[in-house]
């Protein structure tokens, strides 16, 4: 049975850029132009989960993203690796959304897409790290949800999910449709093949504005928030590292032992 899947992907500044380049200015996070936008890490794992199901059972993958000013080449990676459709909720009104407004708008878009067996999300976004949106979508659409999946298989209208729990894992069966949030143990996203990249380049994303998903501009983005960001700041670090030297790395290692002993750390 082919499986209809929606993968919620967020465009974020590369979370692996050196920490020092992220600077708070006027209560906003800023980064230099050399920090490229990417699809969030956990959404890449979620895409891989969907692709594996498509490989095994066949199906359709729709990538869904909310934001503004999407860099087409970046978000189209979801198509290049094997996704079938790309739906962008793209509008100024969607900017500065919180978890509530994001989950609500994504849920409305998912309703409009209509056909879905599994909605995949990352366990948490790679910028705000909230870890709420997938479960929020599940509540709004009244769907069951399983978090922290490291393996997902589909059979007989159900998904069998290996869920990472503290110091172990459990196998959870969930009837479809359902929301599944994915964690990193699932494995890295495959590379896009040249054919996929070329097909993605030709494909036009579907763009929806708030009205297309039945929402007023006042219900989305900054206007639709249920929390208020009072302040954003970066705690100052003293950051004074004493470098232990030596003629060779091995000598430096031995000197580190002496220094540790001298400082009575061990």
């Amino acid at each position: 049975m082919p499986v209809n899947m929606i993968v919620c992907c967020k465009q974020v500044p590369d979370p692996e850029a050196p920490p020092a380049v992220f600077k708070v200015v006027d209560n906003k996070m800023t980064w230099p132009a050399e920090v490229k936008p990417v699809i969030g890490q956990y959404e890449e794992f979620a895409l891989e989960a969907a692709l594996r199901i498509k490989d095994a059972a066949g199906g359709k993958i729709t990538a869904l993203s909310l934001g503004n000013n999407f860099v087409r080449d970046v978000i189209k990676k979801a198509l290049a690796v094997g996704g079938d459709e790309l739906v962008l909720l793209e509008d100024e009104a969607f900017e500065d959304s919180d978890s509530w407004a994001t989950a609500n708008a994504l849920a409305m878009a998912i309703k409009k897409i209509g056909e879905y067996d599994i909605i995949f999300c990352g366990r948490q976004s790679s910028d705000w790290d909230a870890g709420q949106t997938g479960l929020g979508i599940a509540e709004i659409l009244q769907l069951p949800a399983v978090t922290l999946a490291r393996k997902v298989e589909v059979a007989d209208g159900k998904a069998r999910v290996e869920q990472v729990i503290p110091d172990g894992c459990r196998v959870v069966e969930v009837p479809l449709p359902a929301v599944v949030t994915v964690t990193s143990e699932l494995g890295a996203l495959r590379y896009a093949a040249l054919k996929g990249i070329m097909a993605a380049a030709k494909k036009q994303p579907v763009i929806w504005k708030p009205a297309d998903i039945g929402l007023e501009p006042s219900q989305v983005g900054a206007a639709g928030r249920r929390n208020k960001l009072e302040k954003l700041f970066q705690p100052v670090k003293e950051g004074k590292c004493e470098m232990i030297e030596g003629d060779t790395p091995a000598e430096a290692g031995a000197n580190l032992a002496l220094r540790l002993r001298e400082a009575k750390l061990l």
Partner: peptide, 20 residues
């Protein structure tokens, strides 16, 4: 990591750690 650390050694772990 050297911004976070109090003590540091620059070198390949294969050389540094066994000596340590």
């Amino acid at each position: 990591i050297f911004r976070e650390a109090e003590l540091g050694v620059v070198g390949k772990y294969e050389d540094v750690v066994p000596a340590l």
